[in-house]
Design a protein around this nucleic acid. Structure first.
Lengths: 204, 204
DNA sequence: TTGCCAAATGATAGTGACTCCCAGAAGAGC
DNA sequence: GCTCTTCTGGGAGTCACTATCATTTGGCAA
């Protein structure tokens, strides 16, 4: 509340909460790997993480949130997008923003491949995949503000919403495609193909 | 099975099934209007429609399907789209196809406004709204085939999926926007604004 | 009309995610 | 040390949804 900048939270309570959250998620992923997402019951996850099922639901409102509550790529995207000049065309800005996201993700080794594996899980479980748009919706608000400023329209205007919908929709499909691809695939090349497709076929 | 063209199905069984389906849905919408979607329990709907809850689930796999299983505007869209010349640019084809959908919907008086009210319900209930992309996904397959042919790429290619995602994403936002608008609003004008936005801001 | 088969229905007993509530434990501040 | 707040565990309950089986009902031919 008062100091959100510190890397490690100060109070013992905060540290314990973070630890519990991590333990629950780790336990869940361990069980998912063994028996799959749907076959893993929540009380089993709670037991594996040494908490009660009540506590589980205090940390994760739904089972799907175990997977979806991690940072969605759409959030860093909107951050990078805000850093681009406002007079840049939308697609150019998006292209460079995504490239910047990839670069920043590559700084931590293995992070990109871990993100891809998570997308693989998301793509393979229907109930999770169906909630992907919802998960992208909140970071999508940042995207909306950024795009609204860029096209000079209110955030809630049809124009802004449509543009956000199109970008997120394209982005979502690109991510799902990324999930079904070999680990070595170049994320930058995929990005360029995505943007180029939009640019080529969605113009007057 | 053998004669899918007849307007009224021949056998008594088929007619009864259709009638039961309609009765369940009517009962549901009646109760939704009284007490809202979430507050209406399925056994109550079944009782109101004079069937057992078992039978309810034989007709509608989920509660949300009561609302979502009706024809989505995206289906006629893909049909109209198939009627457009293949060498037409994507956005031009989509624009004319949607116009054609609106025109065909207007033939039956009140149909358009009823569709808008249904969107209002969809937009207002989170669990239903979240499943809208999923509901658009099946007609989206038709859209994918149509667009794939148009851009000369396989249906499962990144290019096709991205394009479908963008169009459906934009379309979805436009529909949700439509839900929050006065009944007199011109659907054609909304369509044009949507397409124009894509054309203006998503080009190289 | 009769009788047989297939399909549709209803009743019942589950399952599992998720909620509510309350009593007790544990960290924070004095 | 003593309060005050926050976090936790346990238990009872809700509700969408599934599985099974006996009964009914429409379809069809003898």
């Amino acid at each position: 509340m008062r100091n959100a900048c510190s890397v490690t939270p100060q109070s013992l309570r905060e540290r314990k909460k973070l630890r519990t959250r991590r333990e629950i998620r780790d336990a869940a992923y361990r069980l998912f790997a063994e028996q799959g997402f749907e076959a893993t019951r929540i009380d089993r996850i709670a037991a594996e993480a040494n908490v009660s099922t009540s506590t589980f639901f205090r940390y994760f409102p739904t089972k799907e949130d175990l997977v979806l509550s991690e940072d969605t790529p759409a959030r860093p995207l909107s951050v990078e997008l805000a850093a681009r000049p406002v007079d840049e065309p939308v697609l150019t800005a998006v292209r460079h923003a995504i490239h910047a996201c990839v670069v920043s993700a590559e700084r931590e080794p293995g992070a990109l491949e871990r993100a891809r594996q998570r997308m693989e899980l998301i793509a393979s479980v229907p109930s999770v995949r169906d909630r992907l748009p919802e998960a992208m919706a909140r970071p999508g608000e940042d995207l909306a503000e950024s795009l609204a400023a860029r096209i000079g329209r209110p955030v809630d205007s049809l124009e802004t919403r449509v543009l956000v919908g199109a970008v997120l929709g394209a982005f979502r499909e690109a991510l799902l495609h990324w999930a079904g691809v070999e680990p070595e695939a170049d994320a930058r090349a995929l990005t360029d193909r995505t943007i180029d497709t939009l640019a080529r076929h969605l113009s007057a």
